[in-house]
Design a protein around this nucleic acid. Structure first.
Lengths: 195, 195, 195, 195
DNA sequence: TCGTAAACGAGACGGTACGTCCTGTCTTAAC
DNA sequence: GTTAAGACAGGACGTACCGTCTCGTTTACGA
């Protein structure tokens, strides 16, 4: 039994650290985020941070997962187009209307070159998104809306890639983007009669 | 007349710095790239670096522009599909077979959150790519291969977004990806008879 | 109450710094003394030095005060000549047989032009020496050994000035010097009738 | 024949360097004197300085010798006391009323620990002073004013040591100091019977 | 109710890198 | 061949953070 001895860890400190880190990450970006400053803003000793997270990366990753966790599965809406638009729209909304946008922007830089952040992120968020696209597309195929040979992986990237492209390189992340992407994707994968 | 006074700047030192920086950027990534180490590997004083580049970011940006500059315009091949595949293929090839791939991966992190790198990159490389896609598509529309209402911006992002997505989040950057993306894009934008 | 918070400063580091600084000061002199090297030899981070001393000067001053503090008052020996010789002899001995000599030589340069070192040194060491000479001379006047109008300030400088002169410009600092100075001070050079 | 070829060295540059160096030496002291700043203030390239002086020390030494050269021998005044007072007074006057004072103060620090400055200074200025004292004292002995066994070396240091002591550690360098020193040297402090 | 054990805020620790400054040398065009 | 200008390699400066390590104190649990 891992009986807990000694003083329990403080939830207040834990939350203060996350809040301070989120604020600073948004303010200055990942590279200029300093744990020294997080500790100061949170009113916490540095050791209290290191006791919970082994590195800046893992703290940042927790911030990201915290913001991506309220992920909601797409229900069967009867229409493949509606479901895809809902899916893409929820991604755009999360990026534009919650702190996820700035946090994501700050961490984009780390996904490619920093396995400590990239790997867990891929294993959870990216994977979950691919699976959701797969579920929606499977329903679409079953309905006869989509060609049975539609490639789920390419489809995910065609829907999500442009969004991250704009997040990275600039460009509107307006709600109009979702239907535009879905329209193009569907026109491609839809059986001939669809159009 | 900007008469040159004093000892001219050394081209040898300039190139040694760029070489050392490129190597180290690929080896350790942008965050762990230290100008101290660049100077040491280049056999150069730190001041010689700071005389040319005000920051690590601007040095890295120069590396990136140096690698993206050998950009070749797509000639008229008679076939819109061939031209698009050539375009996408050349991007994939540059990312997989030249130092551009690792350098890009190392700098992806900075585009979103670091205007000092992101803005110039957007203004040159991203802009050039959009314009090339626009030229190819304009020829396609003229040929009757493409629907006249095809949106160039969305098209660029559908072609390039998935590539950067895989660069960032992992996934094959095989030569097969190009034709897959073009096929999907064309199926969407092509006039009905195309398929 | 000045409650102590945080980890206390390390006495070991403090002493290691002083030792390394003393050695290097003697080896290379004040101008060529580098805090970087002190830190390296002491096995200490540079910040640990700067936390204690704001500058090279103040560190050097502490070295000097550390070496001049074991100052011993001259007891009543019954003979003014003996007391003066003891006083001058102890100064010469300290300069020739302890690290004070080399340290003093290294810092002589700073007394005149560097108030940060000169002022505290004057306020403590020079002042203490003047007072000791004054006490000895007062006893001498009381004994009837010395003329009552003898000027203490001039006397101090006549005894100590030549010693520092030789320290600075070269010349024996042999034990013989003390009695010579005292003899001349007491007797004067004029033939008897002059006065 | 050392025929001069090429452009002759500029006397104007030479003098501008000495002037700038003297000013800066007085303003900031020897340690904080930077050849970079001397060159800038003199409107001269750094190489022009290094072509003439191998080091900061030798430049400073030249400044010092330039100021100590107008040394005037003491004529036979008929009175040993007058001659000694003239000698000591001329030293005090030079130190208080010409730039020699500040320059000396700035360089005092280097005499002991820096042979490059100390040795030539000792060999010229200090030596000349000792010889002058010797001449005056020899005349005094010949006149019967001074005891024949008077030690010239000790005498020089008793006259000059206190002056440098005050220059270094503070204290009036008033014209009154000269007669006080000469008086004490001649008379001694002991009550008459002592001898 | 009293240890005992772990977490707490604080801040010092040995380090690494920063960006600046200065050194003494070298390289140019102008004279 | 010297000049002013200024770039060069090198190296120290004083500062900022890193991740670790004491401190004295606080908080909970089990004896």
């Amino acid at each position: 039994m891992p009986i807990r001895r000694g003083r329990p860890r403080s939830d207040a400190a834990h939350q203060a650290i996350l809040d301070a880190a989120r604020e600073l990450l948004i303010e200055v970006g990942f590279t200029r985020l300093k744990l020294e400053h997080v500790a100061a803003r949170a009113g916490v000793g540095k050791a209290t941070i290191y006791r919970r997270w082994p590195s800046k990366e893992s703290l940042a990753l927790d911030l990201l997962l915290e913001l991506t966790s309220p992920y909601i599965a797409i229900p069967d809406l009867g229409s493949t187009r509606d479901e895809l638009e809902t899916l893409v729209g929820s991604i755009i909304r999360a990026l534009t209307m919650t702190p996820l946008g700035p946090v994501m922007r700050a961490l984009l830089s780390q996904f490619a070159g920093n396995p400590a952040i990239g790997d867990p992120f891929r294993a959870t968020v990216v994977r979950a998104r691919r699976e959701e696209v797969a579920r929606v597309m499977a329903r679409g195929v079953a309905r006869g809306d989509l060609r049975p040979d539609a490639d789920v992986e390419i489809a995910t990237e065609l829907l999500v890639g442009p969004i991250y492209f704009r997040l990275m390189f600039g460009g509107d992340l307006s709600p109009r983007l979702g239907p535009q992407l879905v329209e193009t994707l569907l026109a491609g994968y839809a059986v001939a009669v669809e159009r």
